[in-house]
Nucleic acid binder design. Structure first.
Lengths: 121, 121
DNA sequence: CAGCATCCGGCTTGATACTG
DNA sequence: CAGTATCAAGCCGGATGCTG
């Protein structure tokens, strides 16, 4: 916890048990990255997210959204209209994560055949 | 599940329920990325990994290692010695993932204060 | 040292019902 | 439409103990 075993060298990319873990735990759950990725092109409504992220339950979407809003990665805007409308959008902080999500997605696409082939054995 | 509810719009870089999900599910579990990151500087023994990745249980390390080997991200080499020695090492495929892990770690370090501040409210 | 077997608590999920 | 509340079920991960 006090963590950050001072690795003397120049800023090491990744110290095992410290700050990285702290944040990584938060974004590497099953849905967070998917939600962030879904918002890459702009704000989306609750229902739209539900349709975009195939397989997520209403409950998990609600919870994940809440966590991401708490972390400040996305913002929630409720419009006081007759059919209630709520939009979720990436914050500036959230946007800084986008390149990584994209990169991850591209990596996934690029190597999934290889991975699947490996798994098949 | 039948999934892929034809989103009328044009094919986005990251299709929600498809290949990305498939791979993302595999690497976005609690430990995989940590294990990959731990191997960034070269092969490590089981025990070394256990010490490096603070907090991981033996069971989860075993399982995670097994999965990563199956996926072909790391290789396992057992030396037939008196005290058994087993080393794990990134494969070429695994190495392609490293830059992303590094980037993720750097992002985490860079933004964790902000995230923690947000959460505090 | 490496890693498998077992028990168990918590999170994830799906379904359902209800509110603003 | 956009959630919240609740319950039952399943899977995952954690701790402990045992084996090759």
């Amino acid at each position: 916890m006090t963590g950050l075993t001072r690795t003397n060298s120049c800023p090491p990319p990744m110290d095992d048990g410290g700050a990285v873990r702290e944040v990584l735990d938060r974004i590497s759950d099953k849905w967070s990255l998917l939600v962030v990725g879904a918002l890459r092109e702009g704000p989306l409504r609750f229902g739209a997210l539900e349709k975009t992220i195939t397989g997520i339950s209403q409950r998990m979407l609600t919870l994940t959204l809440k966590h991401l809003v708490e972390d400040g990665l996305i913002s929630r805007t409720a419009y006081a209209e007759v059919p209630p409308r709520v939009e979720y959008e990436l914050t500036d902080l959230g946007k800084t994560l986008m390149p990584l999500v994209i990169a991850l997605a591209e990596w996934a696409l690029e190597h999934r055949d290889e991975i699947n082939a490996n798994r098949r054995r």
